[in-house]
């Protein structure tokens, strides 16, 4: 059984200090079939490691100041062969078989239901997410991936520029995203929730800030969300919203961003069609609020140094307000 706050156990066992209460992105707090198996391997390995380390230290102490009889036994060459060759040979064989067995069961997961397939593209320094619904438009999003609970999900992983690595510890191991290749990660998440992840392969400049959320929802919620996400957001009704839309178009935002239903059809940056429904702005660096949106537009290079979006300090304060209002209004009607 996996303890509820595993980090605490590790910590308590190792150094009696407080503070390790975070399961935000913990390997030891698994929520998918795959991650659970890996944690079992991990606990097994911690046990094995502790045992061998204690063995080495105890033998060492005995060798230094142990009883003469034991020291004489330890000093024999045959002891070296037993402890140094035979013992590791046996234990490592066990470990190897166990590891391979887990790999196999990771490959042979149940393939029930209609498999969900989502494409994730690593870019410097954000995640492009593409849902290929069987019918209807391709839905593009960024930095948050919504998946259904309980059914197998295949993530097709690609890279647009340099190598990235897709890693959401709570739901599974990492898989690299390599230019020119498509790698796959298969998962079955077993409980709804929001799981944080971040790029695990150094990808230059703002690698440290390349985070994302995986939002696992029940199958019915997921289907409903997918339906909503396919819709085109309504034209803003307020004056400020309309003004914001004209600023959005006049300031050239459409050169990089897409908002379905408008002339903005750029593909360099994240699709903003439903940005109003997202959780964060600036690739998980800031929660989605009006202030943060405005800050990212005029001061993005401080929020996330080196990102591709230029700072639009040319915008007057009221233009900026209007733009933010418009962006926040971009979501499907509930």
């Amino acid at each position: 059984m996996i303890p509820a706050r595993p980090c605490w156990y590790l910590f308590g066992a190792s150094m009696l200090l407080g503070g390790c209460t975070s399961d935000v992105q913990s390997v030891m707090n698994p929520s998918s079939l795959q991650a659970v198996q890996i944690v079992e391997v991990a606990w097994f390995l911690f046990g094995f490691g502790t045992f061998v380390l204690v063995l080495v230290i105890v033998t060492l102490l005995l060798a230094i100041r142990g009883p003469l009889r034991i020291r004489q036994a330890l000093a024999r060459e045959s002891t070296v062969i037993w402890l140094g060759i035979a013992f590791p040979a046996v234990t490592l064989t066990v470990l190897l078989v166990y590891g391979v067995w887990v790999m196999r069961s990771n490959l042979n997961l149940p393939h029930g239901g209609s498999p969900v397939s989502i494409e994730v593209v690593g870019e410097q320094w954000w995640w492009r997410v593409l849902y290929h619904a069987p019918a209807g438009p391709q839905i593009a999003s960024a930095n948050e991936i919504r998946i259904p609970v309980g059914s197998p999900v295949t993530l097709n992983l690609k890279a647009a520029d340099v190598i990235h690595s897709f890693w959401v510890p709570s739901i599974g191991g990492k898989v690299d995203m390599i230019p020119g290749r498509t790698t796959q990660l298969q998962l079955t998440v077993d409980r709804p929730g929001v799981y944080r992840g971040q790029c695990a392969e150094y990808c230059g400049g703002a690698h440290a800030l390349m985070a994302m959320d995986v939002i696992a929802m029940s199958s019915s919620d997921y289907a409903a969300w997918l339906e909503r996400a396919a819709t085109v957001p309504a034209t803003p009704e307020t004056d400020i919203g309309l003004h914001g839309r004209s600023i959005f178009l006049a300031a050239g935002c459409g050169a990089c961003h897409t908002v379905r239903g408008t002339a903005a059809a750029g593909s360099l940056g994240p699709d903003l069609t439903h940005i109003g429904a997202r959780r964060s702005v600036g690739i998980k660096t800031l929660p989605l609020t009006r202030e943060n949106l405005m800050r990212f537009i005029v001061d993005g290079q401080h929020v996330k140094p080196g990102n591709l979006m230029p700072e639009f300090r040319v915008l007057q304060p009221q233009q900026l307000e209007a733009l933010a209002s418009y962006l926040l209004s971009l979501k499907a009607a509930d």
């Binding site: 040979a89 490592l92 064989t93 190897l96 078989v97 391979v100 067995w101 790999m103 196999r104 490959l107």
Partner: peptide
């Protein structure tokens, strides 16, 4: 010998 045995061991389990 041990090394070779370990190399072929996984082929028993994995596709």
């Amino acid at each position: 010998l041990l090394g070779i045995a370990w190399t072929i061991l996984p082929t028993v389990f994995l596709p």
